[in-house]
Amino acid sequence: MTRPLLSVRNLTIDYVGLASDFRAVDDVSFDIAPGEVFGLAGESGCGKSTIAFAISRLHRPPALIRRESRILLDGRDVLDLPAEALRQFRWREVAMVFQSAMNSLNPVLRVEDQFHDVLKTHGERDRSRRRERIAEVLRLVDIDPDRMRDYPHQFSGGMRQRIVIAICMALNPKLVIMDEPTTALDVVVQREILQRIDELRRRFGFSVLFITHDLGLMTQFCDRIGIMLAGRLVEVDNAATIHDAPKHDYTRQLWAAFPSLHAEHGA
């Protein structure tokens, strides 16, 4: 494998309690290569979203990333970045699509403004050039640029999630994290969004960290998959192997939990 884009080493995250801590992520290590789609699967509460938040350092107290943890992006440890460097690193290098399509955009700001602020803070001072860029990325996701003056509530859930993806594309990031990006959407829209991401990935070459509890969806979409159980990464392998010959008991249980399509995997 070529030099990894993202390299997570011994990542351990606790939620600090009054007397004892809850260990949400326990000594997790994995790599993502440039251009690769890596999936993290597991039931809710297993720590997969906690990992995603740690990569952009979005945690708030009482979350605590233990000191032995390393998150290397292009060889640089994200956890060591000072405040201003971290601010510049965010979105330029790692962009993120969040769980709820209905709630990722600020309801009281025009869609346009939610592009402007990210472009401006990352160095584009000229308003008309920003406008051009906004129109360009909106076209990438098939949203009419004329609608950039609208507010989020004037768009459907699927459209809003496409707008978020357009915001992700604004700065050509190296890694896009997708934290259950389609849970709130219906199946047809879900598929459309994923195909769109895949298409953009082929065109621009970014890597994807894809997080979901839907193992079936994941095997169709990812190159490699990691299975998480109670904060630990129990199995990492190619998507095909995870699908055809899972090694860990828990992976088999996950397959067994799928009712129809993957019934042949039943224990």
Binding site: S56, L58, R87, V94, N103, S104, L105, N106, T121
Partner: peptide
């Protein structure tokens, strides 16, 4: 809320 976390992820001040 997601839109606040996303705003931080965007690198806004």
């Amino acid at each position: 809320e997601d839109y606040i976390v996303m705003a931080q992820a965007k690198g806004l001040s």
